[in-house]
Amino acid sequence: MKVMIDEQRVARLLQDMVRIPSVNPGFEGGVPERGMADYVEAFFMRLGLKAERREVRPDRPNVIGILPGVIGDAPALLLEAHMDTVQTANMTIDPFSAEIRGGKLYGRGACDTKASLAAMLAAIEWFAGNGVKPPVPVHLAATVDEEVNYLGVLDVLEAGHAYAAAIVGEPTGLQAVVAHKGVVRCEIETVGVSAHSSKPEEGVNAINGMMKVVAHIEGAMQTRLRSAAHPLVGPPTLAVTQIQGGVAPNTIPERCRIRIDRRTIPGEDSEQVWRDIRAEMAKLATEDGGVNVIVHPPFVLDYAMDTSPDSEIVRLVASAAAEKIGEVRPLGVPYGTDASKLARAGIPSVVFGPGSIEQAHTKDEWVELKQVVLAAEIIAGTMLEFGK
């Protein structure tokens, strides 16, 4: 059975959603995702399909739409895409105009990842509109909070549905991503003794202590990380991303803090990585003249993903995509997605969607509409085959 998706219909779906502001409330100018959730819920209601609305946080609901399958009680295929976007500050276009120029649709979230959500909705609509049932039920989860704390996908796991596999929407250029990195973000603090800057010898400068910490991170720790690599995602990485210290220009600083971003690779345990960093800093304090250093608990901790290329969902997505764009091979990426939470719950997951990660979060974010159409057809083709 051949699936043909109308480009104008896809464009209308994506325009509708880009015009609904859904900047994650964790960012400047953020608003809850309720407007997006209302849109997705109404979409399923128009098709006569069940939609389960789950309040993850006030005004921040997930919506799980359900397309019945031939085998009604079989574990479902999950399609998941997040509704939130990053901030709009410094954009050079109207972030919510959803203007179409030269076959591209512009706006915040157009690429990351409302395009994936539009493709999934269009695929569901094709089945409902043509009276076709997939072999197993298909659930579409439109989720909140992927850009900050992953609360939405965690709530999907708490909803109690059984899932055989998942397609997680992100801009992958229609390639099948089977591996990605995890992340540990935490604060490291050095503690000194304040004094008047005219008598610095009476104090202990926390910034000087932090200079030793940063030098150790950029030296010995970085060297060790570069020696380990995963075949698809490369080596783990560590970066100092923020620093704060001192209270006045005439006071020896008592405290200095940095934030670090440690990207983990498949095979690493993110919690153990944090414990290792804490042990490393404790050792540094002992060896380097008594630097008083504290490693605070992670404020973000996520896991790497590594799905077997031989799993059914990967094979079917890759096969359906190859029919449209030619050769498709399983890839790894350095960023993280909601898929890692599903994979840790035992759900084989592949990350897939239209657009390029190079356009995500940019000042003039856009996606090619033809890719969104192809994504919809590839997803629908996978739905037709999964669970046969």
Results as ranks from 00 to 15, higher is better:
residue 346 G to W: 10
residue 106 Y to C: 05
residue 247 V to G: 09
residue 274 W to I: 04
residue 293 V to H: 06
residue 64 I to Q: 07
residue 97 S to W: 02
residue 374 L to R: 11
residue 55 E to K: 06
residue 115 A to P: 00
residue 5 I to L: 12
residue 260 I to K: 03
residue 204 V to Y: 01
residue 204 V to M: 11
residue 356 S to V: 00
residue 283 K to A: 14
residue 165 A to K: 02
residue 167 I to K: 01
residue 125 E to I: 10
residue 136 V to N: 01
residue 20 I to S: 05
residue 52 E to A: 07
residue 66 I to Y: 10
residue 352 F to Y: 12
residue 275 R to V: 03
residue 346 G to H: 07
residue 156 V to D: 08
residue 143 T to A: 04
residue 373 V to A: 05
residue 281 M to Q: 04
residue 164 A to S: 15
residue 53 R to S: 02
residue 298 P to M: 11
residue 321 A to Y: 06
residue 152 G to M: 07
residue 83 M to S: 07
residue 214 V to L: 03
residue 149 N to A: 14
residue 145 D to L: 03
residue 351 V to H: 03
residue 249 P to A: 13
residue 347 I to P: 01
residue 222 Q to P: 01
residue 29 G to L: 00
residue 353 G to D: 04
residue 344 R to A: 10
residue 115 A to Q: 01
residue 80 E to H: 08
residue 10 V to R: 04
residue 161 H to E: 11
residue 327 E to R: 15
residue 297 P to T: 00
residue 73 D to G: 11
residue 248 A to I: 12
residue 373 V to S: 05
residue 71 I to E: 15
residue 32 P to L: 04
residue 40 V to D: 07
residue 123 A to V: 06
residue 34 R to G: 00
residue 184 V to W: 00
residue 202 E to G: 11
residue 174 L to G: 04
residue 120 M to W: 06
residue 26 G to R: 08
residue 49 L to A: 13
residue 335 Y to W: 15
residue 48 G to L: 08
residue 221 M to W: 14
residue 189 E to N: 02
residue 25 P to M: 14
residue 321 A to S: 15
residue 221 M to Y: 10
residue 163 Y to H: 09
residue 14 L to Y: 03
residue 239 A to K: 15
residue 341 K to F: 15
residue 260 I to M: 09
residue 158 E to V: 08
residue 29 G to F: 05
residue 121 L to M: 15
residue 312 E to K: 06
residue 86 V to I: 14
residue 240 V to R: 06
residue 365 E to D: 13
residue 45 M to N: 10
residue 352 F to G: 01
residue 211 M to H: 06
residue 67 L to Q: 10
residue 139 H to K: 10
residue 363 K to A: 15
residue 52 E to K: 09
residue 311 S to R: 10
residue 164 A to M: 09
residue 24 N to L: 06
residue 172 T to S: 14
residue 179 A to W: 02
residue 283 K to D: 09
residue 92 T to H: 05
residue 291 V to D: 02
residue 213 V to Q: 02
residue 242 Q to Y: 11
residue 358 E to A: 14
residue 232 L to E: 00
residue 131 G to N: 07
residue 263 R to K: 13
residue 123 A to C: 01
residue 100 I to R: 01
residue 383 M to N: 07
residue 367 V to W: 01
residue 91 M to D: 12
residue 257 R to G: 00
residue 302 D to V: 11
residue 97 S to N: 06
residue 310 D to N: 14
residue 355 G to H: 02
residue 88 T to L: 07
residue 351 V to T: 09
residue 199 K to L: 13
residue 310 D to R: 14
residue 278 R to W: 01
residue 330 P to A: 04
residue 61 P to C: 13
residue 90 N to Q: 11
residue 42 A to K: 15
residue 314 V to R: 05
residue 209 G to F: 06
residue 295 V to E: 07
residue 37 A to Q: 03
residue 17 M to G: 00
residue 237 T to N: 03
residue 365 E to P: 03
residue 241 T to V: 15
residue 339 A to C: 07
residue 278 R to Q: 10
residue 265 I to E: 03
residue 51 A to H: 08
residue 25 P to T: 10
residue 214 V to K: 01
residue 310 D to V: 09
residue 120 M to R: 10
residue 64 I to N: 04
residue 257 R to T: 02
residue 2 K to Q: 09
residue 300 V to F: 09
residue 379 I to R: 06
residue 142 A to I: 03
residue 189 E to W: 04
